[in-house]
Design a protein around this nucleic acid. Structure first.
Lengths: 247, 247
DNA sequence: AAGTGGTCTAGACCACCGA
DNA sequence: CGGTGGTCTAGACCACTTA
């Protein structure tokens, strides 16, 4: 069978592309009116429906605005795309398909030295409660992640609730202190898993892992908690879905 | 003058609202099919065009997906994003602080076998143009990333424009074919950089790297291009900022 | 082959705007 | 009032998927 001829683009798409080019080329200035639908219909030999479909595309792109009784006005010469990703809940950041439980291995009071302050994006000298933890699937299985959790000493009461199933630090802070997590800053890198962590995870020392640092901010951009996570490469992937705004 | 009688909402809007409510109420489960357009047309006594206008609204809300030859499937019961992250341009996904240039090392026509189809989230047998490339900072320096770019053969013309500064594949497709990148699916993992890639990158074999697979979708959820990236750990980090909606 | 959504036409009436 | 975009109908054929 011969290769299928490349299907022609639909007419509304051809028209939309043509108009887009004309706008970009300056044929219509910003604020100028596009020809009326009936005129475009006649000029390009397509039905008004097809014209509207084309014009709808341009409107979706944010190039034009339409007003009943007035006409179609050029809003921008080219598109400035804006993509968004959304989460229903911060827990989605973790994307664990199953419920997990946390095990606390150690607990310290620390003061941030220069290196830690850089990692946590806080000021040197800042005091933190630090927990070294592993996160396990509910059933018996090797841990998914090694996590260092830093919280403000003021929130120390949540220590008692930390271990167990389906628990998230940010959730505890929200529940017990009425603080709202307003922002989450996430930084993702790769790392060769250090020997000590590899031992805890049951992974090969120096094998690759995902290194994810998350900062949780309350209102007023106040940093409430930071978690530093190491995920063995084969046990975890992060996926994000970006979508053009307005769809 | 008496208050004008509240104009009845357009029929497509009434129908869209009715369907939205039925979905939210659980009449159609996630993954279930909505009735075909003709059935809705008859059942509600409106033309198919009106049905399509209503269904388009639901699709714009992200509640359903439509597929030619298959039908309309419920994707979500309601829309309620809490945290969002936004980008003004897909290029932000890459977060290169400096302009970069792409160098094409090799070019192949490939058919997806099972493994590749899984990686690219496409069907086995699908044909692709594959480019093996490295991305460099503008100034002389080792590459930031090794990237395999897959594009639909129909977009082969962009090959000539691929190399050079500040070039992004998705941008070329948008410019040359009038396609809009509507969605980007991104999957991040860690990997031990294979010897061959390490050689190209000037990195140590088996050293850790970020492994990022991005799928670019046009309208109608059509997969237009896929890139598979390997970033040496010490040369690249991804950061994302999530913010509670309404800020 | 049957059934789905995708595209397209020709025509109609309405709501809104500005002169 | 005339002209604009907004809504709507009836019907047609196409492209795609599944069986």
């Amino acid at each position: 069978m011969p290769a299928a001829a490349p299907a022609a683009a639909p007419r509304y798409q051809q028209l939309a592309e043509r108009l887009r080019r004309e706008i970009a080329a300056g044929k219509y200035a910003v604020g100028a009116m596009l020809p009326p639908e009936l005129e475009l219909s006649g000029r390009h030999g397509v039905s008004r429906h097809t014209v509207r479909e084309a014009i709808r595309r341009l409107a979706d792109m944010g190039l034009i605005t339409r007003h009943q009784g007035i006409g179609t006005r050029v809003k921008a010469l080219q598109v400035e795309p804006r993509y968004t990703a959304s989460l229903t809940d911060v827990a989605d950041l973790f994307q664990y398909t199953q419920r997990t439980r946390l095990k606390v291995l150690a607990e310290h009071r620390v003061r941030a030295d220069t290196a830690l302050a850089a990692l946590l994006r806080c000021k040197p000298g800042q005091r933190w409660l630090k927990f070294e933890t592993c996160r396990y699937p509910i059933e018996d299985a090797p841990p998914i992640a090694y996590t260092e959790i830093y919280i403000l000493p003021a929130y120390g009461r949540i220590r008692a609730r930390l271990e167990g199933g389906g628990v998230w630090v940010y959730g505890l802070i929200e529940q017990h202190y009425g603080e709202r997590i307003v922002e989450v800053q996430q930084e993702i890198g790769a790392v060769a898993i250090p020997a000590r962590v590899a031992r805890l995870l049951g992974a090969k020392p120096r094998s690759p892992g995902l290194h994810v640092v998350r900062g949780y901010f309350g209102s007023g951009e106040r940093l409430l908690s930071v978690s530093v996570n190491v995920y063995p490469a084969e046990r975890f992937k992060l996926s994000t879905h970006w979508r053009l705004q307005g769809r």
